[in-house]
Simulated assay, not measured.
Amino acid sequence: MNINLMDIVGRVSHQCDIMFRVIDIREKHGKKIAILYGEDFRLIADAPYEDLIKIDPGMRMRLTQEFRSLEEQSYKLFRQDVDLLQQKQEYEATEGYSKSYNYFQMPGKVLHIDGDPNYLKKCLTLYEKVGVPVYGFHCNEKEMPDKVGMLLDYYRPDILVITGHDAYSKSKGTMDDINAYRHSKHFVQTVREARKKVPHLDQLVIFAGACQSHFESLIHAGANFASSPARVNIHALDPVYIVAKISFTPFMERINVWDVLRNTLTGEKGLGGIETKGVLRTGMPYNKNSSD
Rank of each mutant, 00 (worst) to 15 (best):
S290C: 05
F187P: 02
F207E: 00
I246D: 04
L70I: 09
Q203W: 07
N263L: 06
K196F: 08
I219D: 09
A45P: 09
V82I: 13
A208Q: 07
R156Y: 01
D176S: 14
K129D: 13
L52K: 06
P285K: 04
V134K: 01
E95Q: 05
I159Q: 02
P239S: 06
A210G: 05
Q89H: 04
L124V: 05
I255C: 14
G38K: 06
G164C: 09
F41N: 13
V134R: 00
Q212C: 12
V243K: 13
V188T: 00
A236I: 04
I234L: 10
I219P: 05
L85E: 07
V188H: 00
R281A: 09
G115M: 03
I44A: 06
Y155M: 04
Y37T: 08
Y127R: 11
K129Q: 15
A194K: 03
F248D: 04
P157T: 02
D46H: 09
I44R: 09
S217W: 10
I219F: 10
G272P: 11
I55T: 08
I178R: 00
N233M: 06
V243T: 15
K172L: 10
P250H: 13
T125V: 09
I274H: 01
M106H: 11
L124F: 02
R182V: 15
V132P: 00
K122R: 08
E216I: 04
D116V: 10
Y241H: 02
A45Q: 15
I44Q: 08
C123K: 10
A226K: 02
S100P: 01
I8Q: 15
Y119E: 00
M59H: 11
D24A: 14
N2S: 14
K277T: 07
G30P: 02
S247M: 13
M144L: 05
K170V: 04
G267H: 14
G164W: 11
L36S: 02
R79W: 05
I55W: 10
G108I: 12
G272E: 10
E39I: 09
V240H: 10
Q65N: 14
Q212V: 04
R281W: 07
V82P: 00
S171Q: 08
F137Y: 14
L218T: 01
S98A: 03
Q80C: 04
L201V: 10
G136K: 12
